[in-house]
Amino acid sequence: MNAGPNRVGQSGLTYFGRTTASISHELKNALAIIKENAGLLDDYLQMADKGLPIDPARFKTVTGRIADQITRADGIIKNLNRFAHSVDEPVKAIDLNEIAALLNVLSQREAAMRQVTLQVCPEGATIPVTTAPYLLLTLLGRCLSICLQYMGSGKTLTVKVTRIPDGGRIEFEALDAARLAAAANFPGENETDLLNAVGAEYHLDGTLGCMAITLSNR
């Protein structure tokens, strides 16, 4: 049996599980705030029933908070939907900027948990590449996790998308990428399988403190 495809499948499933768990936690937080604000409105109504005067401005504040959390939850669901649809076609033509933007929204919570600011800088123009979008997302998510794990809190992780002749490049500027990669033994077998599956190459520039994934459109 070929271990490669199995490992690729397992990596994809692991990323799926981790990402949906993170999204569900964020949704739970939004729902908790909505529930407590609804409860607070109920408290106000009970106070009014007892003849206590309630300033209408307090209702406005609470309904405003509920509306904000609904907007937040709606955004989370939209991102979850985009993530779910990334497996629709195993291989297709995509814009690297769009994958980086999806990686950004899916990874903000993970970065926040590590107390790192995540900043994604897209290229101005479309960068079309033909690849396996979900597996590419899994690979990029793995690169990002390694950077977050080893770069330390209080820093900024910049993910830059650039056009190169016949393709595109996604760079993770993590200050000390060489140390990060050495510490994590990156890329390991799983990441190497993912690189092969998406038709990408991995580069490490210790001087610039940058790890990069390059995809060719040839």
């Binding site: 937080n29 908790a32 705030i33 407590e36 409860g39 607070l40 408290d43 908070r65 904000d68 959390q69």
Partner: peptide, 10 residues
């Protein structure tokens, strides 16, 4: 923070 505000009030 929004959770702290509303829970604290209740």
């Amino acid at each position: 923070k929004d959770f702290l505000t509303v829970m604290s009030e209740r």
